[in-house]
Amino acid sequence: MLRNTRTSYGTVAIVLHWTIALLFFAQIALGFLTQAVADRPRLQFDLYQWHKSFGFLILALALVRLAWSLSSIRPLPLPGVPRWETTAARTVHRLILALTIAVPMAGWMIASTSPLMIPSFVFDLVVVPDLPFTRSDAIEAFWSRTHALLAYGSGLLALAHAGAAIHHHLLRKDTTLARMFGAHTVR
């Protein structure tokens, strides 16, 4: 089933979730790597371009996901899960969904405010134009810091989220995690 039901996630939500989850963690590692190879400028340049390309891919997928999730019903909380936990989980889901959009947007702001004006030639296929903002070293540095902060912050949040899912699976032995692989709620 493509769509979510009251007891299960649909294929679209599942594929989007795991694709974005994988890309997002890999992208944080790649972003970190761009800073770690500062003494190898050639490699650094290439990694930056890959980072921007994957960043725009994540942004596009996250926007699709936002639209999909706004037009979908959600599976009901598992029976027996305290209300505060459900609320906390929902809040975190909304937050990380927003961050998968905000983080690449902040990255786009770096490219758009940098005086270097390096085009974003996504996967050497399409040029994504810069956003119309004033360029300066100081404004670029501000967005670099913001982007890094949001990226590492959302990485931590996503780890906590993943930890909670694994906790449900291993310790509570409920279907929380299995539902994200297509299982239905088991009472």
């Binding site: 190898r40 400028p41 050639r42 650094q44 340049f45």
Partner: peptide
């Protein structure tokens, strides 16, 4: 840009 041009890249 100048620093990049002078570099090993």
């Amino acid at each position: 840009v100048e620093k990049f041009l002078r570099s090993s890249a």
